[in-house]
Simulated assay, not measured.
Amino acid sequence: MGSGKRSDYLPEDERGASFAQIPTSFGHELRACLRCRLVKTYDQFRESGCENCPFLDMEKEHDNVVNCTTPNFNGIISVMDPARSWAARWLRIGKFIPGCYTLAVSEELPEEYQNICADNNVLYVPPKRT
């Protein structure tokens, strides 16, 4: 995986976790990562960041939680085996770690964080405009 090519995921040995935290509540405090669409509570992102996007440093810079996540998303899917799930592949989350993901976000990751993705050779795909 050290080919230097852009990828839409991080290798498992660079992720630090084999699965994402499951949201502790399913109320208004849920947020979705604008890059990978992982869903957790605000406090979970603040405490441990995004397991798919550690380079966004959400647990170190709490402003990044607000800037890199959104409470505005549609639907949730729980994925236990992303590589074997046709739904995960269809949603383009098949190479992320197991966890809860949103079906869609409508906001884009701010440009400065898109640049951080590019600096880390991680693909960012903005949401489709409908």
Results as ranks from 00 to 15, higher is better:
Leu10Thr: 00
Ser78Gln: 14
Leu30Phe: 13
Ile77Lys: 12
Asn64Pro: 08
Glu61Leu: 05
Phe19Leu: 04
Leu103Tyr: 14
Ala83Cys: 00
Arg92Trp: 00
Thr70Phe: 06
Asn52Glu: 09
Ala17Leu: 02
Thr41Arg: 10
Ile97Cys: 03
Ser85Thr: 00
Ile76Pro: 12
Leu109Phe: 05
Cys68Asn: 10
Glu12Asn: 12
Ala17Phe: 09
Ala104Trp: 09
Arg15Phe: 06
Leu109Asp: 05
Ile116Asp: 01
Arg35Ala: 14
Pro23Gly: 06
Ile93Leu: 09
Pro11Val: 13
Tyr113Gly: 04
Pro126His: 07
Lys60Met: 07
Gly27Thr: 09
Asn115His: 15
Arg31His: 06
Phe96Pro: 01
Asn72Leu: 14
Ser106Gly: 14
Arg6Ala: 05
Gln44Cys: 09
Arg35Trp: 11
Asp81Leu: 13
Gly75Met: 06
Leu34Val: 00
Ile22Pro: 04
Tyr113Leu: 05
Pro11Tyr: 12
Ser7Gln: 12
Lys95Asp: 12
Thr41Glu: 06
Ala83Val: 05
Arg15Glu: 03
Arg46Thr: 08
Asn74Asp: 11
Lys95Leu: 13
Lys40Ile: 08
Leu30Ser: 11
Leu123Ile: 10
Cys117Pro: 04
Met58Asn: 00
Glu51Met: 07
Asp63Leu: 07
His62Thr: 02
Val39Pro: 08
Thr102His: 07
Pro71Ala: 14
Lys60His: 05
Cys117Trp: 07
Tyr9Arg: 12
Ala104His: 12
Val105Cys: 14
Gln21Asp: 11
Asp81Asn: 15
Leu109Pro: 05
Arg6Leu: 14
Tyr101His: 11
Phe96Asn: 13
Glu51Gln: 13
Asn120Thr: 03
